[in-house]
Design a protein around this nucleic acid. Sequence first.
DNA 1: CGAATAGTGTCTCTTAGACATTATGGC
DNA 2: GCCATAATGTCTAAGAGACACTATTCG
Lengths: 265, 265
Amino acid sequence: MNPAELQAEQEFLQSYDPNKYERPIGVTADIVIFTITSEVLSGSTKCLPKRSLSVLLIKRNGHPEKGKWALPGGFSSADETLLETAQRELYEETGVDNIYLELLKLYDTPGRDKRGWILSAAHVALVNEQYLANRKAADDADDVQLFTIEEVAKLDLAFDHRQIITDAVTYIQKLMLQTTIAREFLPSKFTLAELLQVIQTVVPSYQITKTNFIRKMLLTKKQPIVIPAQNEFSTEFSQRPAQLYQFANSYVPHLSIYVDPSPKT
Amino acid sequence: MNPAELQAEQEFLQSYDPNKYERPIGVTADIVIFTITSEVLSGSTKCLPKRSLSVLLIKRNGHPEKGKWALPGGFSSADETLLETAQRELYEETGVDNIYLELLKLYDTPGRDKRGWILSAAHVALVNEQYLANRKAADDADDVQLFTIEEVAKLDLAFDHRQIITDAVTYIQKLMLQTTIAREFLPSKFTLAELLQVIQTVVPSYQITKTNFIRKMLLTKKQPIVIPAQNEFSTEFSQRPAQLYQFANSYVPHLSIYVDPSPKT
DNA sequence: CGAATAGTGTCTCTTAGACATTATGGC
DNA sequence: GCCATAATGTCTAAGAGACACTATTCG
């Protein structure tokens, strides 16, 4: 840009009227915080816990939509991205940092907020139950609570948050089958039965025979998804010791409805 | 909500200060309009055209970023969603309606627009070259132009539009392999060679032998992606007549890195 | 030993992928 | 007849899916 153009641009910017276009009242980053809660079943013998997909909600104590359950979130500002806003809110609410957090989509239906034109950038966060355990003891406030998705269906939710949660569930179901996000809900080493249970908790329609699932995980030689931890077994959930596995770091899913475009082997 | 609560909410809304939180100057819907341009090769014999993935850009004639090439787009307002804004802009720019149009993601890096806090909801549109042909004749303005993605790499682009285009290309490459969006770039009936060429135009790394591609398209019995049009052949691109195909409407891709969760057959 | 969960053997059918071969029409 | 492109044949190896079977530990 030559000096004349530069000056023209400077002048333009100095005389620019920020109210030239209609302005939103604000932009919020809202977060659907998913976790898988487990409930130990104390039966006659050892078995896997009962797991449920859950979402963290907050009871609104201010207007509007006072008293309703809502997604955690807050207003963003010019000096941070919406992802940063979401990170901040997530940390404030759960004390958790450095976890899976991603933009889902933007919610902007006119009239979604009675205060006026407020956009919501909905995010999805996946938190391991363990990380929430500490926090739970600290502030067991009854205005912050985990609900299973079955329970959420019965609640009175603020704004368009029911729609956001529905979309988020659909989204993580797809992620669960197409990526290795199951790792976010598992310890670093786990049994194949645990992995299958986590998948089925998020995607209940995923009904397959366990033996073939195990075989698939073991026999995929080109690109193994999980690899066995040498000589490490667990008897936490079963009588017979079960082999422990880890996710293979090298695994990069690439899915195609056409022929696989992978380079020749 | 009981009458007292209702009144409390009314009072809250009437006294609500829209400047309570920092407000963006505006929100724009920008669109990456993709099309596949074809260039007929007039050689000794009939052959497929040369195809290139292209993007529609507009030369900015106002400040800021005056003179640079930019994505078409415009400011949204409180009474429409960003998708509607994008639809409107798309129609204004191309005269095209009812085509593939979807939100890509939100661009909100602080400082991305010198005017101040302006968010951009980037959209992706897929337009069949045919639809643009009429328009092109009408206004062959040199401030609106299609560029192949190779050409775009050399241009001076406004704002963060280079990043947006890069992200959009990555996104449609994934879509191309995982969904049937190839249909957006093809006529309703097409040969398998054309389909393969469209896929390879968008995903150049998709190098496979054509014969196996053809077989895969034909032998997938459970859920065929394309179905042959009975007794319809084309000699447009070849000496020997080639079978014409259509996309199967019943096809619903469901991809999984684990065992296929489809119900038993 | 029985119960419960982990894991393997085996068989059938489908698909991926390489590569050779045949088919059709224009020039 | 030659060439270009379309399409099929054939072979090997891998994977899916069903189902019977073996293995290990606890009580």
